[in-house]
Design a protein around this nucleic acid. Sequence first.
DNA 1: GCCCAGGAGCCCG
DNA 2: CGGGCTCATGGG
Length: 251
Amino acid sequence: MSTPFKTINTVYDSLLRHYGKQGWWPLLDFKDNDENPTSSGILKNYHPGDYSLPATDKQRLEIIIGAYLVQHTSWRNTEQALLNLEKHDCLTVDGLNNLPVEKLAELIRPSRYYNQKARYLKHLAAFLKQQPVAELAKMKTSELQQVLLSLKGIGEETADSILCYAFKRPVFVVDLYTKIFFTRMGISGYDEKNENIKKKVDAGFLSENRYERFNEFHALIVEHAKQKCKPKKPDCSGCVFENKCPKILLQ
DNA sequence: GCCCAGGAGCCCG
DNA sequence: CGGGCTCATGGG
């Protein structure tokens, strides 16, 4: 299935106009204020339009850990797990390395599969002790992607999320929402390879402000999937694409 | 009670 | 490779 790059940009523009800038990736503390490191209990710290974030290695690490925790988990539960980690000074490489895996599992319990994720995060922390986030940030995107994919608990989607939101690389994150939305819209086939879907978006986003567009597009698709293009029960009435979407069935 | 959330590893044919 | 199973919280 071939999709003109014009279509990608039209869909992106419509989503952005309708939903606005999404402010991903949310951070507990985006002021980097040492006097108030725990974000005073505020939960959804989105930062719409501020693409200078993340600005520190601590913030990058927070996003990387959040990317593990959010797997197949609501952001609400993920936030709680992150707040528990921050409260116990474990949103750091050393903090994680000094924490027994059982205690870690306890702290991240609100996120699902916490025993598994605790093991993976211990593995991550041991790796980052040798290869700090600051070093990863210097790597080429393709090399960094291979490194991320070599870690237990990081698959294709999580690797791309980390590349885009923690390291600000121009990478389009393909998730199940994306496949469903694109299929219904006739942009891609449901069984189409992620690599092919990425190529279509890459071809569309050739202009300036590339990173910003990759950042917003995935976040916008997630928001649209939550509100309207829901996986099982799409709510097409009042959808931005109500009159344009061919509503192709998923099979 | 049901349903679903910003997935990945592993094992098998 | 692709399908099926496991992991195992909390809100609506």
